[in-house]
C-alpha cells in the first residue's frame, strides 16, 4: 500500500516536472544551457543510479551523494551538504521500522550514542556553514580519502568477544538477543567501553553535520570494534542513530537557507527509489566489482574536492 502511494506520487512528480515546468521557466535557462527542471530531472536519475550502486556496493547513500554530486552538478557545496543530510535521513527513517521490528536495532544502545551524536552534529552543522567554502572543500576531500582508507583497511568482527559488560552499560541495561537468520542461532550480546564510545560518537556526529555525509561509515566500525556489538546489530543500530542525529543537523541547514526544494526533493526521491530497486538487484549483481568502482569514484571525488579547495583546479 505504502509502496503504491509512493510510486504513484513519484510518477506524478516526474510527469509534472517534465510537462508543466517548461511553461513557467521560459526565462530560467542557466548559463550552462540547461533549464532548472533539466537539472532536477538529471539529479533524480543520477540519484536513482547512485541509490542502486550504494546498496549493491554495500555503502550508505549519504557517503556517495555529497562528494559525487558536488563534483558533477553546478550546485554550491552548502546545498549539496543540506540535501545530503536529508538523503541520509530519509533513507534511515524508512529503514528504521523494519530494523527495529527484526530486533537487530537496539534503542537502548542507540540512545546514549545519539545523545552525543546529535550535540556533535548540531555544532558540526553550524561550523560547516560558518567556515569558508575552500576550507570545507579541503576538509571534505581529506575526510573522503580517510573514509576510503577505512573502507579498505578496517576489519569487522561478526561476533566480537566482550568478556564483561562495562558497569555503566550494565546499569543502562544495554544488551540484547536476536535470531541470526543466516545461521539460525540465537545471539546474545553485550557491550563495553561505553564512555570512549560516547566521545567518539560526538566526533562522528560533528563530522556528519559538518559535511552532510550521513555517518554509517564511522558508526558501524565504532559500534562493532570499539563497543563490541555484533556486526548486524551495529549496522542496524547505526541506521537508528542516523535517523536521530540527522534530524538536528538537517534543521540547521534548513534554517540557514542551505536546503533548496528543487535540489533536495529529486535527490531524496531518486535515492529512495534507487535503494529499493538496488535491494532487489542485490542477488543478481557482482558486489565486489561494483564496490571497487565506488571506491575509485570516491578517490576521484575526494581528490577533486581537495584540489578544488586548494585552488589547483
Amino acid at each position: 500500500m505504502q509502496k503504491t502511494i509512493f510510486l504513484g506520487i513519484l510518477l506524478l512528480l516526474l510527469f509534472s516536472v517534465g510537462v508543466f515546468a517548461e511553461g513557467i521557466s521560459e526565462n530560467s535557462v542557466l548559463p550552462e544551457g540547461m533549464p532548472w527542471w533539466g537539472w532536477s530531472l538529471l539529479l533524480f536519475v543520477f540519484c536513482f543510479v547512485l541509490g542502486i550502486t550504494a546498496i549493491v556496493a554495500g555503502v550508505g547513500g549519504g557517503i556517495l551523494y555529497v562528494p559525487i554530486v558536488s563534483a558533477v552538478f553546478p550546485f554550491h557545496l552548502d546545498f549539496v551538504r543540506g540535501s545530503g543530510l536529508l538523503v541520509a535521513l530519509a533513507g534511515a527513517i524508512s529503514a528504521a521500522p523494519r530494523l527495529l521490528g527484526s530486533g537487530m536495532a537496539s534503542l537502548r544502545l542507540a540512545l546514549p550514542m545519539a545523545l552525543a551524536g546529535s550535540i556533535g552534529s548540531l555544532i558540526g552543522a553550524h561550523v560547516g556553514l560558518a567556515l569558508p567554502s575552500h576550507i570545507v572543500e579541503i576538509s571534505l576531500g581529506a575526510v573522503i580519502l580517510f573514509i576510503v582508507a577505512l573502507m579498505l583497511l578496517a576489519k569487522r568482527a561478526e561476533y566480537p568477544v566482550v568478556a564483561a559488560a562495562s558497569p555503566l552499560s550494565f546499569r543502562l541495561g544495554i544488551s540484547g538477543t536476536y535470531l541470526d537468520g543466516a545461521t539460525g542461532d540465537t545471539v546474545h550480546w553485550k557491550i563495553h567501553r561505553l564512555i570512549p564510545g560516547f566521545f567518539l560518537f560526538f566526533v562522528i556526529g560533528f563530522m556528519a553535520g559538518m559535511f552532510g555525509l550521513g555517518a554509517g561509515w564511522a558508526n558501524v566500525p565504532a559500534l562493532n570494534l570499539l563497543l563490541g556489538a555484533p556486526l548486524k546489530v551495529s549496522v542496524a543500530t547505526s541506521i537508528l542513530i542516523i535517523a536521530i542525529n540527522g534530524s538536528a543537523a538537517s534543521w540547521v541547514y534548513l534554517n540557514q537557507g542551505a536546503v533548496i526544494p528543487v535540489i533536495a526533493v529529486p535527490s531524496v526521491a531518486g535515492m529512495m527509489l534507487g535503494t529499493r530497486i538496488g535491494a532487489k538487484m542485490l542477488t543478481r549483481s557482482r558486489p565486489t566489482a561494483i564496490r571497487w568502482v565506488v571506491i575509485g569514484f570516491l578517490i576521484l571525488a575526494g581528490l577533486r574536492s581537495l584540489l578544488a579547495g586548494l585552488g589547483v583546479i
Binding site: 533549464p35 554550491h76 541547514y253 540557514q256 528543487v262
Partner: peptide, 15 residues
C-alpha cells in the same frame, strides 16, 4: 524554482 536555479551556484548565505 527558476529563482532557486539562478542562485544555487552561490553560497547559502547569498541565497
Amino acid at each position: 524554482p527558476s529563482d532557486s536555479a539562478e542562485l544555487w551556484s552561490g553560497s547559502s548565505k547569498e541565497y
